[in-house]
Computed example of a mutant assay.
Amino acid sequence: MEIRQIRRYTLTRYPIELISHKLIKREVNIQDTIIISGTPRGGTTWFMELLETLPKYKSIFEPLNKKWFSPVKKLNLPPRPYLEANAENDQLKKYLNLVFTGRIVSKAPRFSMNLRSIKKHIFATKILVKFIRANRPLPWIVNNFEIRATYFLLRHPCATIASQLETGTRGYFMPKFAPIPKEMVLKEAQQIPIIRNNEWLMKKLNTITTQEEILAAIWSIDNYVPLSYLSSHQNAWYTGVYEKLITDFDEEIKKVFGYIGEEVPEEVYERFKKPSTTTHDRSHLGTPKQLLKWKKKLSECQIKNMLKVVHWFGLDFYTEAPEPDYGSIKDWKS
């Protein structure tokens, strides 16, 4: 079934992308562009589909995926690139300018399209871009592009990693379920000054051995970098928390759309309990029970190992509780 869905999508979405790109010439103002950034299996696709209800917007899905966007290969980027906020990178800047102005064609195998979504996609004049590989360069992105808004999405590390272990999706260009080498994570950490210069933290990272510890280190780096920047640049973007959206959707979604001065479209409420196109486990969708599923998928040892690593980074607003300490997220300082 899954293979047929991908084939159907390949036969429909890609030609629609080409028609929209080559035949329907429309100016896209980068100042209308919205981006969403988060971790693999962190709820970003669902969040994107909520925001995609905005009139005149179409989504661009994972433009740093070199399998779906051939120009990325020429950039010679690692799977999770890092750039300091004031760094120079003209090639990446030129490429993302194409993305943020809709001048790029995607081969991302997401879903088949109905007539309504085809029409909206062809005639869209505004762009919504979703990333799972942009957390680390997020400060650089917001420093280099004048876009409408940036949303940064957090989700419980245990829930995120449980889903990664179950689906094999980790945001790396390697076979699904293949173990990620510890050396890869240490090399990435060495490239980030705020981590590299923390001798105690680097010594701790050298002790990780299990896959859950390695994935917890990756989750922590992915979130530590943008949170550290946010602690001194409080208005850089909107920080959304997946758990809060689930438990208090009506209030939180008003804040999400209010951030860009928009009323909540009625279609959003229809989509709240609808699984995203990348959801595998569809039980308890849109209910607080959804936040407990990871407790059944992980052993006590795995949970302990993950949280131990996460807490090394000072990200202790997540514990064994299904929801984080929301106040601590808001007040967090690196």
Rank of each mutant, 00 (worst) to 15 (best):
Y95A: 04
H156L: 03
E2D: 11
V105N: 08
L23Y: 09
L98Y: 08
Q31S: 15
G102Y: 03
N65D: 15
K254S: 09
K330Y: 10
L138I: 02
P275I: 02
E262N: 03
V268R: 02
S163K: 05
K296H: 12
P288E: 07
N86P: 01
L96C: 09
G171N: 12
L315R: 01
R103G: 12
Y224E: 06
R4W: 11
Q31R: 15
D325W: 00
E146P: 10
Y242M: 01
K295P: 02
C158P: 03
K67L: 15
L165K: 14
A124D: 11
K22H: 15
L50I: 15
K297M: 13
L205S: 05
S276N: 02
Q290F: 13
P322Q: 00
M202H: 03
R110N: 12
K176R: 14
D281A: 07
N65E: 11
Y172N: 09
T277C: 00
N144H: 14
W332T: 01
W46D: 00
E199Y: 11
N29G: 00
T278P: 02
D248F: 02
E17Q: 15
I147V: 14
K25C: 04
I127Q: 15
K25F: 01
S299H: 05
F173A: 11
W237E: 03
Y326V: 09
I127N: 12
E213L: 08
L154M: 08
K333N: 13
M113K: 06
K293Y: 08
K25M: 07
G43V: 01
Y326T: 10
K204Y: 06
V185T: 13
I60F: 07
Y242W: 00
N235S: 12
V268L: 00
A321V: 02
K67M: 13
E183T: 09
V256T: 09
E300W: 11
F272W: 06
